[in-house]
C-alpha cells in the first residue's frame, strides 16, 4: 500500500457511452430513492472499463453528478479500493501476488522477470504502452502458487521461465490460455490424484 493520488495529467472530460449510461441507470434503480450513492462502486468499475482501465478526475465528477454525491465522497471510494487505478495503465495490467504462499513458492523470481522484461517501475507503463505491473496481496489462488493476474485472467503455477514465455506471448499479441501454465487441471495435485481415484460406487471400503 502507498499513498494513492489522482494522476497529474487528466483528460478534459469524461462521459459514459449511451450503453454504459443506460446500464448505470439500471444500477441506480436497484437502490431505494435517495440511496443512489450505493451504486458508486459499480459505476466506478464500469467507468474504469470504459476509460482504458483507469479512473480519471472528470470521471469522478461525472459519477458524483450522476449519483447526487459530493465529489469528495466519490474520491474517498476511488482512493480506498486498490482495484481502481488512478493513473493510465498498459494494455496488459500484471498483478503479481506477493502474499506468503506465492512468496514461499517463488513469487520473487516471477517479480524479477517482470521487472527485467518490462524495465519500468510498478505503476508505470512500458514505452510501447503494452504493459504495466503492480504487486498485490493474496488473489486467492494459493494452490497454484505462484501466480499473477493479467487483466481479468489468472496465470498460475509460474516460475521464471514460464513467466518470461507468458510475457513474450502477450508482447507478440497472442492471448495465452489462462489457468495453470504447467498443464495441470485447475488445482488438482501436481503428481496426479491421491484420492477419489476410483469411479463412483467402487470406493468407500473402509468406512
Amino acid at each position: 500500500m502507498s499513498v494513492r493520488r489522482l494522476a497529474e495529467e487528466q483528460p478534459e472530460s469524461f462521459e459514459f457511452t449511451p450503453e454504459n449510461l443506460e446500464w448505470a441507470q439500471q444500477q441506480i434503480a436497484k437502490y431505494p430513492e435517495g440511496r443512489a450513492a450505493s451504486a458508486v462502486i459499480s459505476l466506478l468499475w464500469r467507468g474504469q472499463e470504459q476509460n482504458d482501465g483507469w479512473v480519471s478526475e472528470p470521471m469522478i465528477r461525472c459519477i458524483g453528478d450522476l449519483l447526487g454525491m459530493p465529489y469528495i465522497r466519490v474520491l474517498e471510494v476511488a482512493t480506498f479500493y486498490t482495484m481502481f487505478n488512478l493513473a493510465p495503465r498498459g494494455k496488459y495490467l500484471i498483478q503479481i501476488c506477493k502474499t506468503t504462499p506465492c512468496w514461499l513458492r517463488g513469487s520473487d523470481d516471477v517479480t524479477d522477470v517482470v521487472k527485467r522484461k518490462l524495465g519500468v517501475g510498478p505503476g508505470k507503463v512500458t514505452e510501447d504502452g503494452l504493459f504495466s505491473w503492480m504487486e498485490v496481496e493474496c488473489l486467492g489462488a494459493c494452490c497454484n502458487a505462484p501466480m499473477i493476474q493479467i487483466n481479468d485472467d489468472y496465470y498460475e503455477d509460474l516460475d521464471a521461465a514460464r513467466t518470461e514465455a507468458l510475457l513474450d506471448a502477450f508482447a507478440r499479441g497472442e492471448t495465452p490460455a489462462p489457468g495453470s501454465q504447467t498443464g495441470r487441471r485447475s488445482s488438482e495435485p501436481v503428481g496426479g490424484l491421491t484420492s477419489l481415484t476410483g469411479s463412483a460406487g467402487q470406493t468407500g471400503g473402509e468406512s
Binding site: 494513492r4 459530493p70 469528495i72 474517498e76 480506498f80
Partner: peptide, 8 residues
C-alpha cells in the same frame, strides 16, 4: 461536503 478522508 468539502472535507473527506482519502486512501486508507
Amino acid at each position: 461536503y468539502d472535507l473527506g478522508a482519502t486512501g486508507r
